[in-house]
Amino acid sequence: MKVLEVKDLTVQSGDGSKVVSSVSFSVEPGERLGLIGESGSGKSMTALAVMGLLPAELKASGGLLLGTGKDAPRQIIGAAEKDLNEIRGRVASIVFQEPLTALDPLMKIGRQLSEPLRRWKGLKGEGLQKAIISALAEVSINKPERIAASYPYEISGGERQRAAIAMALACEPSLLIADEPTTALDVTVQAEILALLDTVVSKRGMSLLFISHDLAVVSRITDHVLVMKDGSVVESGSLTDILRSPQHPYTRDLVASAKELDNALAIAKNSGGI
């Protein structure tokens, strides 16, 4: 039983060039999979394809089955928008890189959060207000009442990303896709958001597809990784295997640069620099 099964996924742009070519992988319930690659490697397009959210000028082909348990797996590619809307948010949802643009600037946080809650749980009035506050509290937001009544530009970047995560979690999805969720944040906030994702994913027993260009970040939250380059998967396996013996030259570079940074940090620490 799998939450997500991707078979030979190919994404082509209008001029025929392949953004993603023959990518296959699967995610088991409760599994955490990291997707690493540089920008332009096709990792974000893979994520959008999973949600059926590819831009109109891109065409996907291959197999993409999403669903588990009471939601029988459904083919995403070629599905009607109406059917996709039944899956989106409830079976899988996504957290984006930049929370400032991923939230409507003219809508209060509470109101944005109320949309999926109202739709999926049929809540209204008092019950809806309570659900909003508890959803914000779950992502460790202090003073959830204040945040709920604020516009996105009135709160901090970390709070915004927490609110965006709360929105993604609102319909209790089986799979959470996090597309570079910490890249736009500063380092201390980054660590907090990673810890938060770690906690909620374990607590809810969700699957996680974590997308990043940063091996160090991915290594802190997932146990299996997929390395993408130029639209193809060049290597996959458990994180420890990949760190110990990277096969593909690109992976070797990734590991080497991560280790270099580690060493530099260690030297700096020993000499009292940091």
């Binding site: 989106r88 984006f96 991923a102």
Partner: peptide, 26 residues
């Protein structure tokens, strides 16, 4: 082209609703 439209679609909001709650107010 904004991310919040994609984010809203990702949580299952229909286009008709997106027009009224996101596009027109913006």
């Amino acid at each position: 082209a904004k991310d919040f439209i994609t984010a809203s679609r990702a949580s299952g909001t229909s286009w008709a609703r997106i027009i009224f709650i996101h596009i027109l107010p913006n």
